[in-house]
């Protein structure tokens, strides 16, 4: 089994664990699009401290790991037009659907939307 798959499984487990803790301890659903989006459009302002704290962790921990391992590979494209269009679509789409497909997936819904994505991309 390629190392990528094992890393995927371990990383996925951490993501699931994080979502599980957030649900069981704070009673909330962990979804990046919901947390950021709620701050952007004001629907989540009542819990801004909690949301902000989560985002800080989400930002700083990978930053520290990336620094420790001397960088991390990320964006395959640096075409600004593509990045802007893609960013707008991702931001708008996740907030219309009330979550990204990955979030829906982790929280256990939405096979249909995954199919929608595959259909769209090809």
């Amino acid at each position: 089994m390629p190392i990528d798959w094992i890393n995927g499984l371990i990383g996925g487990g951490l993501i699931g664990l994080a979502a599980a803790i957030y649900l069981l301890v704070n009673g909330r659903i962990m979804g990046a699009s919901g947390i950021v989006g709620g701050l952007v459009d004001g629907s989540g302002h009542h819990a801004w401290k909690e949301r902000g704290a989560l985002l800080l962790g989400l930002f700083f921990v990978p930053a520290i790991i990336a620094l420790a391992q001397g960088g991390a590979s990320t964006f395959a494209t640096s075409n600004l037009a593509i990045l802007i269009i893609a960013g707008l679509l991702v931001g708008l789409g996740t907030r219309i659907a009330n979550g990204c497909t990955s979030g829906h997936g982790v929280c256990g819904i939405s096979r249909l939307s995954l199919r929608g994505i595959v259909a769209t991309v090809f």
Binding site: N7, I10, G11, G12, G13, L14, I15, G16, L17, A18, A19, I21, Y22, N26, M30, A32, A53, L54, L55, L56, G57, L58, F59, F60, V61, P62, I65, A66, A72
Partner: peptide, 11 residues
């Protein structure tokens, strides 16, 4: 939770 989430995404 955010930290765990971020570490998981990176790993």
């Amino acid at each position: 939770v955010g930290g765990l989430f971020g570490a998981g995404l990176l790993i």
